[in-house]
Structures are given as structure tokens and as C-alpha cells.
Amino acid sequence: MTGDNAQRNELGDFLKARRAELRPQSVGLPDGDRPRRVPGLRREEVAHLASISTDYYTRLEQGSLPASAHVLAALSHALRLDEDQRSYLYGLAGKSVARPRRRSAQRVRPQWQRLLDQLTESPAMVLGRYMDVLAWNSLAAALITDFSAIPVNQRNYVRLAFLDPTVRNLFDDWETTARTCVAFLRMEAAHSPTDSRLAALVGELSVQDADFRQWWASHDVASKTSGTKLLHHPVAGDLTVDWEILTSAGDPEQQLMVMTADPGSTAHRALSSLISGSAPGPSAANTGSGSVASRAQRPQRTVSVIPRTQTGTQ
């Protein structure tokens, strides 16, 4: 047996051992009706979690194929490897470990903050990397949710759409909205595939939501531009809003989303009622600031606004 073949067999043995330690429930998978002949995950389940074919994964375990760095990263995540196990896996494959990049926390640009403060008749917010909500005005809080009550590390638009149980009842078409969220996130992931913030967000959503896991694996992508959404708001009732995304020339990773309604329309009157029913106050940025009076009068249920947009396959 050659050295390369022996190393590939050792890699296969390592993969088998690691999947044997995992249970379907621990990675967000159902047990299934078929009895398990061996403990742990099946090959097809690992392949599904890593977004590769079962045949490809099987050949990796059998030592008949080399593994690329991209596949090793996917398998490390799928098998929940710790740092030492990840380094060992890469070493067996003859690859250097791609360390996740740590990027500095984003702060809203002062220009965006001033614009938010001056937008008093239209809900608006600033979205950062991976659709983190960096800042918002009072009307966006009244329409969507009290962002200041959400911990900063959970203040993410995609996360809200999937993990807040009230959101699904507020969307007229939750599935289209949620799939579009995933397509936006997948598009942004192409720019920083090893960012630790992205890895944590995708990992959390993959474990906690089967729909996210399936749609993330489909690799559909889309860019944020503009759209229309029908919302079922618990206070303002049904309203259709249009929204536009404006990208900052000074920082392309920050985008302003502004929501509007046709003057004189039911939605416009509904937004006006939210304005009159909410105490005006300064916008709250990523520090969680905001007036107590404004927070006390905001609806406590969550709404998310995402446009319908065309998606393609990466």
C-alpha cells in the first residue's frame, strides 16, 4: 500500500469515527423510519449536511478520492469538529488549515445615522454584513420589532425571519420570503467564505431550522435590490409596502433599506397610524439605545420585510 493510499484510508477511518459519534438530533436531522445498523450518522446524512453528493462522500471514506480544502471545510462543519480535530483532518488530507477570519464589528456610518433620524414618515434601517441590523428609525421599530430589546449578536434579519416563531404568521408568503433571505446570505457568503461570523450564523440556522438547511444546500443566490411585500401587522392590519436598497459609496458593506407606501393607500394610512401611535424619538443604533417611551409603545410581535426577487444557481 502506498503512502498516499494509507493516508487516505486513515482519513476515511477518521471520518467514519467522527460520524459514529453524532446523533441525528444533535445536528438537526430526524431519526427517520429506517432502523440504523450502526450508531451515528449515515453517509448520506453527512453528505447532505456538507452539501456534497453521497457518492462523493463515500469515495472519500473509501480513500479513492482526494479532498479539496472547500470540502474539508464543509465536512468540518458537518461533523462538528473542534479545532484540534479540524487540524488533524486537514493534515491527513495534506492541506493547510484555513483559519476563519475575524472581522471587526461594524458601526453604522454617521451619514446613514443622520438620514435615519430625518426619515420620520418611512420605516428605514441600516443592514450590515450578512444582514445584521445596525440601526433603525422609530417607525421601523414600530413596524417590524423592538430591535433594542434583541441582543446585539442576535440582531440579524435572516435570523429573525427563521427563528422568531411569530414572524411566519406575519408574512403573507413566508416561504418565498425566507428562501430569498437565504439567497441573499449565500450571495454575501461568496465574498468572505471563512468569516467566523458567517460560520456561526449559518451553523446556528442549519441546526435549528430544517428549511434553512435544505435551502442553504441548494446554493440559490440573489442580490438585494427592491421589491414589494404584503404584511399582516398585529396593530396596523394588512399593508403592502415597497422597499428599496441603497448601498453606501463610502462602505459597500452597509445598505439602507427604506419602506414606502403609495400616498392615500390603505398601507400609507396604516403607517401614518403607527407614526401617530408611537412616541417620536431618535433612532437606535447597534448600541441598543433608544427612548424608553418609544419602546414602551411599540408592538411586541415581529415582522420582517424582504422582497420577492429572482434567484439563480451559483
Rank of each mutant, 00 (worst) to 15 (best):
Q208H: 03
V38Y: 14
R179L: 11
A140E: 05
M259G: 13
G32F: 15
P151C: 05
Q254F: 05
P123I: 05
S64R: 15
E10T: 15
G128F: 00
G63K: 10
A50F: 04
V292F: 07
F162C: 13
M131A: 07
R159D: 05
V241G: 01
S248M: 12
Q113N: 02
L116K: 01
E188R: 08
P299M: 11
R186L: 09
L72A: 04
R295E: 00
N156P: 03
R86T: 14
A6E: 09
V221Y: 07
R80S: 13
A285Y: 01
H70T: 15
Q106G: 00
S291W: 02
R308I: 10
E253K: 11
V221M: 07
H191P: 00
R295M: 10
A149G: 15
A69L: 12
V303H: 01
P307D: 14
A73R: 07
S104H: 04
Y57I: 13
D117L: 00
G227Y: 03
L160W: 12
S272M: 10
D4T: 10
G264T: 08
A6S: 12
R23M: 05
W174T: 00
V38L: 15
P30N: 09
T302R: 04
A135T: 04
V108S: 02
H70D: 12
A189T: 03
P66M: 03
S76F: 03
Y56P: 15
R8M: 09
V133W: 02
F212V: 00
A78K: 04
G281I: 08
W174I: 03
R101H: 01
D251S: 09
M257R: 05
T194A: 03
A190G: 09
A293Q: 14
Q214S: 11
A6G: 08
S76P: 06
C181I: 11
A200Q: 14
L198W: 01
D33C: 08
V207Y: 12
R99M: 06
I275G: 04
G128M: 01
V235D: 10
L230C: 11
V152Q: 15
S76L: 07
Y157C: 14
A17I: 03
G237Q: 06
S283R: 05
L29P: 07
L198D: 02
Q154H: 06
K224T: 02
A74R: 10
G312D: 09
H70K: 13
A140M: 06
E21F: 04
A190I: 13
D238F: 01
G91V: 03
Y88K: 03
A161T: 15
Q314M: 05
T260V: 09
W243S: 12
T176Q: 08
S291A: 14
R129H: 02
A74T: 06
M1R: 15
S51A: 14
R114P: 00
A124F: 00
G312T: 05
R107Y: 02
L185D: 00
A284L: 10
T313K: 13
Q300G: 09
T266M: 09
